[in-house]
């Protein structure tokens, strides 16, 4: 995978890198069980502080997105191994933000529900297409 960060943006480098890996895993660009570069390799490739890469890997591991096998390296975790409680908490936070936004925009719950379902259908469609294009089972 091609990693990229913009050190001169107002978004912390670790946030950029973390989001990038999460997106890559969600979209199937990084497949289950695929190996990630070592901390050293990625830090040197991006010319960033190794502590930053380490922090990203630690947080992703805590969220169950990647896992480290001692002496072997870091890999994209298998989906079923994700911690259900953490998953629920993360989803809850995202939904909470959505509610706040909807409230601020004075969107009523009917519209919110409709748009949510539309988005979901759209997302499923994209995943299905992705499967056909890349033959990635999901």
């Amino acid at each position: 995978m091609w990693y990229y960060v913009d050190p001169h943006s107002g978004v912390p480098i670790y946030v950029q890198l973390k989001e990038q890996v999460k997106k890559a895993v969600a979209s199937g660009l990084l497949k289950e069980g695929e190996q990630l570069p070592s901390v050293r390799e990625l830090a040197l490739r991006l010319t960033i502080n190794p502590n930053t890469v380490y922090k990203v890997y630690q947080e992703l591991e805590r969220e169950g997105i990647i896992e480290t096998a001692r002496g072997l390296g870091t890999f994209v975790a298998l989906k079923k191994q994700k911690d259900a409680a953490l998953q629920e908490a993360a989803l809850d936070r995202a939904l909470e933000n959505l509610m706040v936004e909807a409230y601020q925009l004075s969107v009523d719950s009917k519209t919110l529900k409709e748009q949510f379902l539309k988005k979901l259908a759209n997302w499923k469609e994209r995943l299905r297409k992705g499967d056909e294009d890349n033959d990635m089972g999901n």
Binding site: P7, L44, T47, I48, P50, N51
Partner: peptide, 27 residues
């Protein structure tokens, strides 16, 4: 510096007005 110092667990004190360099590597 990252390879020989940081990755070896050593400490760097980087004085600079090259903000771009600092922004890349500083904790």
């Amino acid at each position: 510096i990252l390879d020989e110092i940081s990755l070896q667990g050593k400490t760097v004190f980087l004085s600079s007005h090259q903000l771009h360099d600092v922004e890349r590597v500083a904790d």
